[in-house]
């Protein structure tokens, strides 16, 4: 039995040695016959000699022979494939030449950024609403607690429709808050992205049209603490978990109390007194927000004693400018392909 085991080892070494020298399919065939040939193959002979062993020894050695057979078979196949690959005729090409591209179109960064914002709010249980861009004075101002002749209207430079004193281009997406609250009863948890218009002469930071996203939550027991929690989660998801967030008192006619929300400057991390982005303050103003003014709730027949809510608004262009460090807001609307196509990678 030991003798046989020794033989098995020897055959494997012999095979490996011979396999090294196989250079052609013919030689490979010879090698195959030499070891696996049905009549005179080494392995066939080995199997024949099993007969001389005791019934206890037979399966042991049988197994070893089988393993060797598997080994040889797989090695022969490997050599066969290598030989085939070597002999296959392939035209000589310079494979270092550049590959072909499929000209994929690029998304507009504002649309893409808006989508990102929407996705974060979907995750937080919000839905998305929209509304008309040509609005009435009532929805754009009056229902939002801007009385006629109120100086607060000066902050929202308005473009009006010719021939119709009651119509204007919405200066914010807030009128959709009113429309949403007229349409349905609380609980309400919506965001409203969209185009807004201001009478502004275009310059690097002002445009007569830009995109805004507005949010509104109304329910029983909604508090300023909820406003803070919601906006902090949103901003952390949009920017980074590491940013610092600051709420400061502010004023909007349609919220009370009102707040302005700043995030820590992600460009200089508050360490550069000369920082171009935060002007050395370490903070970037990012959102306006507040508790929905009781008068606004009354205007849509929601009882402010029973319900409360919060609202917020953010410039999409302005925020995208900050995120991508784009210095001129006009570049979003010039639609230069060299600008737009960069966002294929984003």
């Amino acid at each position: 039995m030991e003798e046989l085991q020794e033989k098995i080892k020897q055959y494997q070494l012999k095979f490996d040695e011979a396999a090294k020298n196989v250079k052609s399919p013919n030689e490979l065939q010879e090698l195959r016959v030499q070891f696996l040939g049905r009549k005179r193959g080494y392995l066939t002979k080995l199997i024949d000699s099993l007969r001389d062993l005791s019934p206890e020894e037979r399966p042991l050695i049988g197994k070893e022979i089988n393993e060797l057979k598997k080994y040889i078979t797989s090695r022969l196949e490997e050599i066969n494939q290598n030989l085939a690959a070597e002999t296959r005729k392939t035209p000589r090409i310079d494979i270092t030449l550049p590959g072909k591209t499929i000209p994929l179109g690029a998304p507009h960064p504002i649309v893409k950024f808006q989508e990102e914002i929407e996705n974060i709010f979907y995750q937080m249980g919000f839905s998305v609403e929209d509304g008309p861009e040509i609005e009435t004075d009532y929805y754009n101002f009056e229902a939002l607690n801007f009385p006629p002749h109120h100086p607060a209207r000066d902050d929202w430079d308005t473009i009006y429709i010719e021939g119709r004193d009651d119509l204007l281009l919405r200066t914010h997406t807030s009128p959709v808050q009113i429309r949403a609250m007229e349409k349905r009863k609380p609980p309400i948890r919506i965001i409203i992205p969209g185009r807004v218009f201001r009478k502004e002469t275009p310059d690097p930071t002002h445009l007569p049209m830009f995109f805004q996203v507005e949010g509104l939550v109304v329910d029983v027991g909604i508090t300023f603490a909820h406003l803070k929690g919601t906006l902090e989660s949103f901003l952390r998801r949009l920017f980074s978990e590491r940013i610092k967030i600051r709420f400061r008192p502010s004023f909007f006619p349609f919220t009370e109390p009102s707040a302005e929300v700043d995030i820590s400057c992600t460009v200089c991390l508050g360490e550069d007194k000369e920082c171009r982005v935060c002007r050395g303050s370490g903070w970037i103003e990012i959102l306006g927000a507040g508790m929905v003014d009781p008068q606004v709730l009354k205007n849509v027949n929601i009882d402010p004693e029973k319900y409360s809510g919060f609202a917020f608004g953010m410039g999409i262009d302005r925020t995208a400018m900050f995120v991508y460090q784009i210095s001129d807001m006009r570049s979003f609307y010039e639609n230069d392909l060299r600008f737009l196509r960069q966002f294929l990678k984003q």
Binding site: I102, P103, L104, G105, A106, P107, H108, I110, V111, E133, L169, R195, F197, L207, P208, M209, F332, Y333, N335, L337, L340, R341
Partner: peptide
């Protein structure tokens, strides 16, 4: 192969 653009509404 079409690229998305945004223009003013005017």
């Amino acid at each position: 192969g079409f690229n998305e653009v945004l223009n003013f509404s005017f």
